[in-house]
Nucleic acid binder design. Structure first.
Lengths: 156, 156
DNA sequence: GCTTGACCTGAACTATAGTTAAGGTTTTAT
DNA sequence: ATAAAACCTTAACTATAGTTCAGGTCAAGC
């Protein structure tokens, strides 16, 4: 434990790790990537402001939704003050991430529905099967009709 | 193009790549990982049976659903015959994968709902917040009640 | 005052899914 | 017959998210 002041005002890297349920090496890693920051003691050991716990909580939730660390870092950097995220900050970030999640859920749902329809079909034609010509690349239909060779089809 | 027989019976790695919409290096990679296989010409060049196209189609669809290559390979290995997957094989695999997808969609949906509820809250307490005590680890509630220190909460 | 646990740095390593480069061989087309 | 395009292998490199190790320092308890 790091007892720098009369109260435990600062946390050592081990404290942070323990209380966030992550490893010390992960805390180091996040700092190296610029997502969090610390001050140092005279002996060069990291000390974290207690606000770090909230910040790490937010980082972990964002990771659960599938957002890469770089993006999480960018979002945190865009916060007005660069101190502890406030409730407002959290509201902003989390509603953004909820929207992202919704989009990914929709995408997966479309994929699932498509898959459901294709289970009985099995054509998997690169030009005809919606599973292979995905929605997001649906724009250009590709040139020319294709023969359907039943024995050795042009596309599997 | 590889014209080994009177008809184009075998495909070169370039043919395969072009017709599947993947890169040559990816085809090599899949072969190295044991997901696909080829025979060789006298000059040591790969030749693929046309069935490879169907197999690769299946691999690509599986990847879209988020299944790692190793698992895809294992699923393909478990197919009764180890030749070209039949329509039946496809039906089996794809309905398995659809179920997997459904599960992941459900998970993400629960997460999204939780996130929606936590947007206005912002407690993010490691012991109290459902976002941090996730469903899949919900079993052990953890010991002890916690003080609510509003200024510097025990957990952010 | 000394031992033990916690901490420091930097480098290397893990896994996943490939890509890129280098140097050499084979096929294909003219 | 020759030049270009395609192919071969091995090794190293990319990105993401960390973990592990080695060698050394710091801090806390007894």
């Amino acid at each position: 434990m790091a007892e720098v002041g009369p109260l435990q005002r600062y946390l050592s890297v081990g404290d942070v790790a323990r209380r966030c349920g992550i490893s010390v090496s992960a805390v180091h890693f996040y700092e190296r990537k610029g997502l969090i920051s610390s001050i140092r003691t005279d002996g060069n050991q990291r000390r974290f402001h207690r606000g770090i716990l909230r910040k790490l909580a937010i980082i972990k939730v964002a990771q659960k939704t599938g957002i890469p660390l770089a993006e999480i870092g960018a979002a945190l950097d865009k916060l007005p003050r660069n101190t502890v995220p406030t409730a407002e900050d959290w509201a902003k970030l989390s509603s953004q991430w909820r929207d992202d999640l919704n989009e990914r859920i929709d995408q997966l749902t479309r994929l699932r529905d498509q898959l459901g329809q294709c289970i009985g079909c099995g054509c998997l034609s690169i030009s005809d099967c919606p599973l292979r010509n995905p929605y997001d690349e649906l724009a250009q239909a590709g040139p020319g009709a294709r023969l359907l060779e039943m024995d050795e089809p042009d596309t599997p």
